[in-house]
């Protein structure tokens, strides 16, 4: 017995090493598999506050560019909804009419930290649960989709970027309606791939890819990107589609976080259905 203790004492460093490594690997596994249950992310108050200092110092350098983006966005909205305040006549509509009830609401947030050159990229937003953000909300920029909220603290939110090999989003080809999954395997901040589009789907270059919606995360029809190239690899059931992302992920400044107000209703209905 004493020999055993002596032996354990002699290899105590190795034992401590194995224990620490095991802890880290369990965290890693949990983080990859069910990423909702972990607390180690950039929405924590310390990281968020430090990132906010940095963005307060650096945001002046990009003010001109952000203003130009906002003007372009305003122009697009003006063209869509008209310039006058009475463009939408709501006087004849009864209160609570579902035609004017919006199923999606948007919360503006500022990106205080973002990476775009690693295999697993994340963004940190300056809004959190105090602004009624919660996990699994879609995040869209002025030009296209940006990511999905992964965790929130009272004042910050950690967002998994579309430039992350762990994120897959349902998208469709706008012209033909074929479904696919947006998957980032290009290791390049400007492009991504769409997988699982069947070979009979006649996707062409310059087709627009938009979100499919119905997943409780993104509204349908949010712009994603434009098809750059379509390959037909032999021996695989799907096309190899590469797209250019509309949102410039290297310069994303302000974003809108999407709340799907029908999500809980749809989720509870779907969970009532008997499982096969």
């Amino acid at each position: 017995m004493r020999d055993l203790f002596r032996f354990l004492y002699r290899i105590r460093d190795t034992l401590l090493f194995l224990a620490l490594l095991l802890t880290a690997l369990v965290m890693l596994y949990n983080g990859n598999m069910h990423h909702r249950s972990i607390a180690i992310n950039s929405s924590n108050a310390v990281a968020g506050t430090i990132f906010t200092w940095r963005s307060q110092v650096t945001e002046y350098t990009s003010l001109r560019e952000r203003n130009e983006k906002l003007v372009v966005e305003n122009e697009a909205l003006r063209n869509r909804y008209g310039i006058g305040s009475d463009a939408v006549d709501t006087t004849m509509q009864p209160a609570g009419d579902s035609a004017i009830w919006q199923p999606f609401t948007f919360t503006a947030a500022k990106v205080v930290h973002a990476t775009y050159h690693k295999p697993l990229n994340y963004l940190t937003l300056d809004r959190g649960s105090a602004s009624s953000l919660h996990e699994d909300m879609g995040v869209v920029g002025p030009s296209g989709i940006v990511g999905v909220v992964r965790a929130v603290s009272p004042r910050f939110a950690s967002v998994i970027s579309v430039l992350n090999t762990d994120l897959r989003t349902s998208v469709k080809v706008k012209r033909t309606g074929h479904f696919g999954l947006l998957y980032w395997n290009t290791m390049d901040a400007a492009t991504a791939s769409v997988i699982d589009i069947p070979k009979h789907g006649r996707v062409r270059e310059q087709d627009t890819i938009v979100t499919m919606g119905g997943d409780g995360i993104f509204p349908p029809g949010v712009p994603v990107g434009e098809v750059l190239s379509v390959e037909n690899p032999p021996g695989r059931p799907d096309l190899n589609v590469r797209i250019r992302l509309f949102e410039d992920m290297a310069r994303v400044g302000f974003v809108y976080v999407v709340e799907d107000r029908l999500r809980s209703e749809r989720d509870s209905l779907e969970s009532q259905q008997p499982t096969r």
Partner: peptide, 15 residues
């Protein structure tokens, strides 16, 4: 890991 939202990644490498 807390700054990069990558639980366990830097921890395992440093260990």
């Amino acid at each position: 890991d807390a700054f990069g939202s990558t639980p366990g990644m830097h921890m395992s490498a440093c260990t």
